[in-house]
Design a protein around this nucleic acid. Sequence first.
DNA 1: TCGTATAATTAAGTTATCTTAACTAATAAG
DNA 2: CTTATTAGTTAAGATAACTTAATTATACGA
Lengths: 154, 154
Amino acid sequence: MALSPQLSGALHDWIDVFMYRAMRELLRLLRARGLSLSHYSLLMRLYKEGPCVVGDVADMLGVSRPAATQLIDHFVAERWVTRVEKAEDRRYMTVALTLRGRALTEECIAVRHRWLDDLSPLPAARERAIIAGLNALTDEVTRFQAAPNKRKSS
Amino acid sequence: MALSPQLSGALHDWIDVFMYRAMRELLRLLRARGLSLSHYSLLMRLYKEGPCVVGDVADMLGVSRPAATQLIDHFVAERWVTRVEKAEDRRYMTVALTLRGRALTEECIAVRHRWLDDLSPLPAARERAIIAGLNALTDEVTRFQAAPNKRKSS
DNA sequence: TCGTATAATTAAGTTATCTTAACTAATAAG
DNA sequence: CTTATTAGTTAAGATAACTTAATTATACGA
């Protein structure tokens, strides 16, 4: 099962114009803040899915354990995360965002939104249609993200 | 002038779930292809806005001229771009995507789309509403991108 | 309890990417 | 024509991010 070709096409068009613009703004911010792709990935991962251990960071980024350690060293030095031993098993180190790290992540998220606010308003009826449609799409993606395997196996 | 708070909110929600997913897929591809942020930026720039000269690359990325030269050296070695003197003024070098470079860029664009196609279909009426709405949004953003200054000054 | 496995770190070295300074070549200006 | 300006490159060196190999510390199983 899949979206209709028409909806798929409309989504692709929208995503192309949207992503080009949003990415440009995001890359500008990352460069200004001295953040790499790995930095961004780790920030978003911790923001969206909560604390994890050092090995998770290595696996997520597809790098070696020492590389993850070093990346986290940097994050700790910047006070974006804390790194503390797990009580249950002291071999593990739990990595979690600080308030400072959370604020930086939210700044990355905000640049996606900011330029949208300069757009001209649309007719009220059209706006209502978009709102309802987007909310349906958002729900669908959220459900899909929560249980992707069940769906894929169909 | 701006979008209504309701539409703005619906867009933000959609963008949050969409970007998180799309970025994850994109970053995975970039890593697999050995592409950096600068590589991605340059590919997209050339794809969307056509050929440019070396200095434009430096300015776009916010790096020195030698850094741009070296990045383009790499792109030429990978056969992603050509670099040729301008006939009118032979001090300038025109950088343009090859077919190979275009294909790589389109691969980056495609990962944004692919996972969307796994979503479940929505009710037909809802789909029609989303299609009409997204097309209106896409047009609006396209118009805005074509003439951002005129709009901002209002 | 002693050997083994696991999580993370340290150490050493490689590579990519950036910088500044010096250079080449082409155009423009006096 | 001679000098200055501009675009791009070359050269040399700094830095960040990665690798593998060795090390430390904890947990677990015979």
